[in-house]
Simulated scan of single mutants.
Amino acid sequence: MSERAVSTGLFVNSKDMQVIGLCRFSYPALGGFQVEHETIDERISYLYAEDRLEERFRLMETVALPCLREQTDQEFELIIVIGDSLPKLHCDRLHELTADMPQVRIVSEPPRPQREVMKELLNEARKDPSRPCLQFRHDDDDAVSVDFIERLRQTVRDCPGLIRDNRTMAVDYNRGYVAEVGAHGISATETVRSLYVAALGMYVAGNCSLTIMNFAHEKIGRFMPVVSLSDTPMWVRTHNGYNDSRQKKVKPVPVEPLTTEQKAEFAIRFAVRDDHVKRAFSGE
């Protein structure tokens, strides 16, 4: 066994690797947003506006959480980062939404530089930094397939050479759906898009302090090998009124109402259910 293999934890089976996810829920970071604000108070006012938070909660309830709740591999952790100024009413609502998910840990932080605080939280979450781990980001308005964690472990197992020679490796499941959700239900279109946040995972070697938050997701391939798989849809990215990346002028993505067969696929593959979406967004 080589010295490098020992130091990186190469021979630890991916079935035993700690899997850590990170989700920012309206966290008022210093930086990290494409929507710019003059002061942190302006950013907090924007993030905590009642209509915006209501949409975020509905997306969290119907899109972001169900897919994690129904993962075929339940051995993962999800850190949800909120601001320490989030009103108690909304903080309590988030705790209620995640009460049945033992994987979730909600962390309250004051405004700090986004990458600094996120990297810190990910590294603090590692139970044994000398052993390798797997990491992923999860936006509060996106879904991943219910076998994402299981497949992430399997893909890492399939890449022993890359793991041997690199401290980090990204795994990009690049086929998925762009969707719009609301009282009308779900409309979507299938697409292939590399290096979205949704269903992008990262292997981190033992004794390596790099995290998935060290890198802009769309540029991660500049710093490490990326294994891309396009065999089946693995994510749903919603376009909605408050996508940070869509506040500037961008090309619209045409979507169509789901067929009966697609509604069944969304329910089975992503745990995103058309009737649940309709109820939540119509206020029932």
Rank of each mutant, 00 (worst) to 15 (best):
S108H: 01
K88S: 15
Q247A: 04
V236D: 06
Y46G: 01
F270Q: 03
S194F: 02
N123Y: 09
F25P: 02
D142W: 06
N214C: 10
R69I: 04
H239K: 14
T191L: 14
A183Q: 07
E75N: 14
S7P: 06
C91S: 10
K248A: 08
L195T: 07
M1Q: 11
E55I: 11
R137M: 09
L134G: 13
I212Q: 07
V277L: 03
K248F: 12
Y242T: 00
D165H: 08
Q114S: 15
E218Y: 14
S108W: 07
R115W: 13
P254D: 13
V19H: 08
R131F: 01
Q247H: 10
E190P: 01
L10W: 10
V277D: 01
M101S: 01
Y46K: 05
E284R: 04
L134R: 09
A271G: 12
T8G: 07
Q154H: 12
E70R: 13
L65S: 07
L97S: 08
K278L: 01
K249F: 13
Y48H: 14
N13I: 04
V35I: 08
Y196G: 13
V178P: 05
H37N: 04
K219A: 11
M169F: 04
D128C: 01
S282Y: 02
Q34T: 11
R193T: 12
C67P: 03
V204A: 00
V192L: 11
M60V: 12
W235L: 02
R279H: 09
G176D: 08
A179E: 08
G21D: 04
C23D: 02
T98S: 08
G32C: 06
R167C: 10
V253G: 00
E70D: 15
F25S: 06
V12L: 14
N166I: 05
L195Q: 15
D172Y: 01
G241F: 03
D147P: 03
D140I: 12
V192K: 15
E38N: 11
E50N: 15
N166D: 02
R4E: 11
